[in-house]
Structures are given as C-alpha cells and as structure tokens.
Amino acid sequence: MESSHSNLSESDSGPLVTIGIPTFNRVHWLKDCILSALAQSYQRYEIIVSDNASTDGTAGLLRQFSDPRLRVVTQERNLGPMQNWNVCVTEAKGDYIVIVPDDDRIAPWMLDRCVSLLRTDPGLAVIIGIGDVYLVADRQILPAIGSRKLATGIREGVDILEEYLRGRISAHVCTIMFRTEALRAIGGWPLHWPFAGDLATWMPILLSGRAGLVNESCGVYCSHAETQTSRFDIEFRLKDLQRIVHLIRAEADDKIADPKRRCTLESLAKAYFTRHAIGIIASRRRTNATLPDLLPVLWQWHRDLCSGLIRLKCGDLFPLARSLALLLLPAPLTRLLRRSIRALRRKRPYPAFTTVAQ
C-alpha cells in the first residue's frame, strides 16, 4: 500500500479516528461497549453507533448519552450484520476507523497506541493489535497472545500475517485499526463472508505492504452463545475457513514475488485451517454430540484436515491435542478435561479495562 503521500495533522479540529459500533438488540451489552470507547486516552475521535433497527431498549439507552463525540445512525430496517458494519464505514469522518462490535470492549490506550505508529507512517492501511478473549459462560479470560518475534512497530504485513497464522498473536476485529479509505477502496466489509468476513478483509490488506503491530492487549473479544457466528452450523464455518485458505493463496500469488514465501503462506494457511476446524468440530461435544455423530463431518473434511495436519509444527501440538482430546475421549472424560482447563484458566489475570455485561 502507498503510504508516503499522507500526512498526520494533529492540529485539525475534526476526528482523526472513528470508532464504529454496529449493534442490534444488544442493549445489555451496548452500554459498556460505549463506555469503553468513551474512555480513550487519545482525544481526537468520534463514535458512531449504527443501530440495525433494534426492537429492544437500545434507542432508550442511546438517549442517555449526551457526549458530543457520539453519533447515532438508526436503520429503518435490519440490513444484516455486515451491511450494518459498512454503515459505520460510510458515515465515518475519521481518516482511520476501528469497528467494535457491541459485545466487545477496547482498552483505554487502544487509539493512543495506534496513533503513535501513525505518527511515523500516516499512510498505513492497517494496524493489528492483539486482544484477550473472554469466555462469558465460564467467566474466564484467555489472555492475549503476543509475538515473541515481532515487537510493537511498523512491519512487513506478511510477517504479521505469518505470526497470526502460526497462532503466535491473537487479533480480533475490535483490536484492528484501518485507514478508512483503504476499507472504502475494497467496498467495505464483504457481504458474502458472514462467518470469516473480518479475516477476508484484513488479511489481503496485510499482504499489500507494510503494516502496524501493537504487541500489547488493546481490547477483548467476548465469546458467548449470542454471537452472530455462533449460530452458523459446522459445515458453514468450515467452508468459510476453507475459502480463507484459497484467498491467502490467491492473494499471495498476486502480491508476493518470492515463491518460497508464497509456499510458506499456503502451508501456514492449511495448518491454520486444521487447527481451527478441529476446534470447531470438537466444540460440538459441548452440546452432547457423540463421536459417531461427528464422524460424517470428519470424513467429509478428512483430506483438508490431513493436508494441514502434516504441516503443523511442534508448537501447534498442545492446542490441537486439547481439541482432539475433547473430540475423541468419552463424554465423562471430556467433562473432566474441560473442568481442569477451566480451573487452570482461573489463575490467569483478569484485564482491568474489561467491563463485561452480566
């Protein structure tokens, strides 16, 4: 991406960054999401809440906020999740934008850390921050995974993508800042990727040149039964993950000159698919699905799973072994394993900036 022709003017009075909060019938989550956005230490920003025709108490909650930085855009009819995200992109006045779904939270230093990198290179198309995961049902936090190889700074985007595919950084849509025009140039968030649309957006941008990395927790993704993606069946999720592998291969062929680097990216993408696909399949055991119930899915996808399995490195074995144990062991043992994992997670520190709706 071209980056040398843009200037970061700190003297302008308008917002430099837009925080977009798409929402629909999540009044019990929305307040804390807005409060986390209003708590930013960097001050040149606006907040756009795009209400996707909510029928609960969302409108009443939004009327309680009088902060001039907050704008509300209300849809007359439900546009669907991704199109509602795109409303935030269309309405943004900031040169840069962060999308924070209504059930996620950002740290008070999120914008400050990103803008610090933009002062060095204002034309960066994307800045990747890492983030925690909060398991709402268990009230447990999975701390952000930070890179041991890449420090905070401006990097080659392909290096950041490789770290993500290896599972060495944990990035979420709420911890990623985009140059607004870069999102608009690709038509915003893709409507035909309802499960992996965020990945399909920022991964190709990373392969276009240099990008920012904030190797520090900048937010928290809340995992719970009400998320949009939790409603998709296994087949739907696996097909979208498979498309991610194809997308990375196509984008690498187009943008990466080094054939060895392209081969590495494809191998990492296949290994990424296998790790996450087995995790998705194994998660069905929590709904009392038996191994025989899941055997048809495993057989249908065995070629893709095996293709990624042979590319996994030693560092991938622990999370994969955990998923395989949940998948293959008898139900009483899997319940014991899950309890043991939860007990270990309780020892992890809880991020002070996270306020989770109860």
Rank of each mutant, 00 (worst) to 15 (best):
E91N: 02
A125C: 06
I310M: 11
A282V: 10
Q43L: 11
P143K: 03
R342G: 01
R63G: 04
S11P: 02
T90W: 09
D12Q: 14
D32Q: 03
H246I: 00
S223R: 13
T355C: 01
T201S: 02
N84T: 15
S267R: 13
P143E: 01
D159T: 07
T58Y: 11
P194N: 14
I186C: 15
Y272C: 05
G146D: 02
V27H: 10
D103A: 04
E181G: 03
R338K: 12
R311D: 12
P204C: 04
M1S: 14
R119W: 06
G123V: 14
V98D: 11
T287G: 03
W85V: 10
D95W: 00
G157N: 05
R303T: 04
L305V: 04
V98K: 04
M110L: 15
P101A: 00
T152Y: 06
H224F: 06
L337E: 11
Y272I: 00
A225F: 10
G123I: 09
C114R: 03
P259N: 12
A196Y: 10
L329W: 05
G187N: 09
H302V: 09
R166M: 12
T287K: 10
G197M: 10
K93H: 08
R346W: 13
L150T: 09
V133F: 06
A331N: 08
A277M: 09
L344W: 10
M203A: 02
W202K: 00
N84H: 08
W189G: 02
D121C: 13
F353W: 03
D316I: 02
C114V: 02
E2L: 04
L328Q: 07
R311T: 02
P194E: 12
V98E: 05
V87W: 02
I160G: 06
I21T: 05
H276P: 01
N52Q: 09
R113C: 15
A171I: 11
L16N: 07
G123E: 11
T152S: 15
R311W: 11
C174E: 14
W85T: 07
K260C: 06
P204I: 10
F353P: 02
T290H: 08
D12C: 08
T175F: 00
L294M: 00
R285G: 09
A289R: 15
T152C: 08
P259L: 07
P319L: 12
V115S: 07
G57R: 10
A257W: 00
I280C: 11
A144H: 07
V89C: 06
A250V: 07
A185V: 04
A289S: 15
V136D: 14
G279W: 13
I48Y: 00
P332F: 07
D51H: 05
L265E: 03
L213V: 12
D198N: 08
E181R: 13
I97Y: 00
A53H: 13
R166D: 08
T290E: 10
I248N: 06
E91G: 06
D103W: 01
Q83W: 00
L317C: 07
